[in-house]
């Protein structure tokens, strides 16, 4: 049976390892500061006992004041999973570090978020629109797009 790791527990562990990296955590997920996203992801992927080798999905949610990007990580070896979140504030020129270097599976999903939500991912090898054509105006999945 799959185990969902508690965000609080992992969050506390990460805060110890990377001071100042975790903004908040609750029982399902933890929120990571975007500067620490890559080192934290790297740590989660390669630490024995955690081994989050499988990135289930990435998505983004628009909460008006900020955008929340949700990463769901799974370990096929230990059969447990975890939700990690990061936020970016504002409406324009948003960016987050890309995790493609760790999980190739993020490739198309990050492009999708860029296309439909307008968050670009730094150091993604191919940051271009994926579903809509280049001259399409706006980002349809934002709540203020009508």
């Amino acid at each position: 049976m799959a185990l969902t790791l508690s965000g609080e527990e992992i969050g506390a562990k990460l805060e110890e390892k990377f001071p100042g990296s975790i903004v908040e955590s609750d029982k399902d997920s933890f929120l990571v500061r975007s500067e620490f996203l890559l080192p934290v992801a790297d740590y989660l992927k390669d630490t024995p006992g955690l081994d989050f080798d499988f990135l289930s999905y990435i998505t983004a949610v628009d909460y008006y004041e900020y955008f929340e990007v949700v990463y769901r990580l799974t370990s096929l070896e230990h059969n447990h999973s975890l939700v990690m979140k990061a936020r970016c504030y504002g409406r324009d020129n948003l960016s987050l570090p890309s995790v493609v270097s760790l999980w190739r599976g993020a490739d198309f999903q990050e492009r999708e978020i860029y296309d439909l939500m307008g968050i670009s991912f730094d150091s993604h090898p191919n940051m271009r629109c994926i579903f809509l054509w280049d001259s399409f105006e706006g980002h349809p999945l934002r709540r203020d797009y009508l």
Binding site: S56, Y57, T59, V61, D62, V70, R104, G105, D107, F108, Q109, L141
Partner: peptide, 14 residues
Amino acid sequence: YRLHIRPPSLINLT
């Protein structure tokens, strides 16, 4: 408020 679909077909094409 938001519905995201994890599409296996898209991700398998990676």
